[in-house]
Design a protein around this nucleic acid. Structure first.
Lengths: 352, 352
DNA sequence: TTGAAAGCGCTACCAC
DNA sequence: GTGGTAGCGCTTTCAA
């Protein structure tokens, strides 16, 4: 049996002790309405409230106002390194508005996503920031969201039904591919994440757009990581390295740092060296990326800023904005470190 | 102006359409009370509720029941690598109870901690899991917590006023120190975090208990990291290496992986090698620790399990348990990798 | 400037 | 097995 909290000081208690009506206390304590109250009364109320250790009951307030000051944030995986800065950005932006964040994870499962959204809806969160949308989730989001405002962050959805704030993953993919091509690599491959995830899809698109305009070959084939993990990076790279020589890449663009780390491990395992034999580019600039062996060349994202912008869009919507201006995708930055190097003299090239 | 949500389907709407009383709908829809309702009525209500897309209003429910199903989790820093598994453990344990987590950060600032607790209290969370307590925060916690149950996790407080679930940091410190001593190191040093943080304090205690029983020397001195970051690890280690030769350690126990990474960077910067010249042990087994250069020897914590246990204690308290049995500290595990090696033949030793 | 009354949506209790 | 009533703690009219 769960026991309910007892003996809480209520508005009425304060009112009685201060010798005024509850409504007056309510007004006196609300910064937005204190001016309606006589300065003396206001002070009296403040003092009594203090004495009694009064604390508003946000639950009652929410019921009455129809607003909870709660924003639901849905992430695929709290352990993902970009989640922390994202949450910080969101929190920062909401801090002045007194909103708090309620967080749930989807683990990239549509059913879990639907359930989480439903829970948010029952709790009457004022809005949802959804960072875990996968292509195909539209019906779940539409149904479960009901009347709640939803803002897509990090990952977007093709339908365009919801405002979204994203990184420019196409640019990130281009930056990575161009860097490798510029280093003289002639056979490149991607370690791709699921294309239902718009971030990964964008990275592929960017990479491919570069490959389309060079004479370097894309030897990726149709490999896709079943999950963007170190283990998958290792497995897929091992497969790439086992191909006949003409189809082994000399440079790999991994869709995130974990895949990249797995790739490097596979390269070493095979007795090859990174970057001497193969170059590897990661994505996300995870916390210790610069201290890996070798230090990882990767793409850095302004995720904190993205969080702020997503929160800002929410604030606009809640403020009654008819339509929010589309936010341009935030540009990433290539961080060149030790895992990429000029291509070794290449048989294919030499024979031409 | 913030607009309030309109046109929500309420219990009453469902009741009218189903031709029954609201109270009946309430009973029919609550798994715990459906048995009080005639099967036919129950089904009828279910169907109508479905049709109308009815969703309980948890806010009203909470007000009435005096229970929100919300648990506040206070962390020092969401980016800390152990936060993710901790949250998962907590969430996992609460999932069946339908509770959700509301999260706030303290950045190790007492004022921020007090404010966050106050916000939790206003929102009438059912309990707080506090992972960010620092020695000296007792008054803030006592005041701000008011009537809320508080469970200390990860970090504990000397006063013993609150139940707490922790890792066995003393053991962790001993494991690290013993490992280095066993490798033959004769001059060891710690990279210590603030002793107001019980985790760091425990690690020191463990380390010192080992040092007290060997002939190896502790050359730590009174250096303490102002923050447990890579930069501080670098700065402090540089200082250690600049000392006269007899006081330069050949092995370093860093209170977390970031400090360890900074230490390794400083060692390299000075033209020395890890582990050939100096061994380094970290703490936490951060995600990419095994892929650093060199792979980091570190202490792994069962943080997921800790989260589960903390949540479990909360559930017991909410269940009305008079007193909860103290939870024994969870044992960590030493993960030996490449950053530690036998001590080089030592001048001090050779001359003896 | 303050008070009184109503009601947000729900559930506990008591009648029937 | 079901209905009625009251009330959780607050804010918002409206009236004085």
């Amino acid at each position: 049996m769960i026991t309910r909290r007892e003996n809480e000081t209520t508005l009425k208690d304060v009112a009685e002790r201060a010798g005024v009506h509850a409504a007056t206390v309510s007004r006196a304590l609300d910064p937005a309405r204190q001016h309606l109250v006589n300065a003396k009364t206001r002070e009296k109320v403040r003092v009594v409230a203090e004495e009694l250790g009064y604390r508003v009951n946000t639950v009652a307030q929410s019921l009455r106002k129809g607003l909870t000051g709660l924003v639901g944030v849905l992430v695929a995986d709290v352990a993902n390194p970009f989640v922390a800065p994202l949450l910080r950005g969101i929190e920062q932006e909401f801090r002045t508005h007194g909103a708090m964040l309620i967080i749930a994870e989807t683990h990239d499962d549509s059913q879990t996503l639907a359930t989480a959204l439903d829970n948010f809806a029952k709790r009457r969160v004022d809005a949802v920031i959804l960072t875990a949308a996968l292509q195909g989730d539209e019906p779940q989001v539409r149904d479960a969201a009901g009347g709640m405002p939803v803002v897509l962050a990090v990952r977007t959805l093709p339908s365009g039904d919801w405002p979204s704030v994203t990184h420019d993953d196409v640019l990130g993919g281009r930056l990575a591919a161009q860097h490798l091509v510029d280093l003289g690599h002639r056979r490149l491959a991607q370690l791709k994440g699921s294309s239902r995830n718009s971030s990964f899809l964008g990275r592929s698109t960017g990479y491919e757009s570069v490959m389309a305009t060079t004479t370097a070959r894309d030897v990726t084939g149709d490999v896709i990581a079943s999950a963007p993990t170190v283990e998958e990076g290792f497995r897929l790279t091992t497969m790439l390295l086992e191909r006949d020589e003409k189809n082994v890449p000399t440079a790999i663009f991994a869709h995130n740092d974990q895949l990249a780390v797995g790739a490097i491990a596979a390269i070493k395992e095979r007795g090859l060296r990174c970057p001497d034999d193969l170059s590897v580019v990661g994505y996300n600039d995870s916390p210790l990326a610069g201290h890996l062996d070798p230090p990882l060349t990767t793409v850095r994202l302004p995720t904190w800023e993205l969080g702020r912008q997503a929160a800002h869009v929410v604030i606009e919507i809640l403020g009654g904005a008819e339509s929010v201006e589309p936010t341009p995708p935030l540009p990433p930055e290539l961080i060149v470190r030790g895992s990429t190097a000029p291509a070794a003299v290449d048989a294919e090239l030499a024979s031409s």
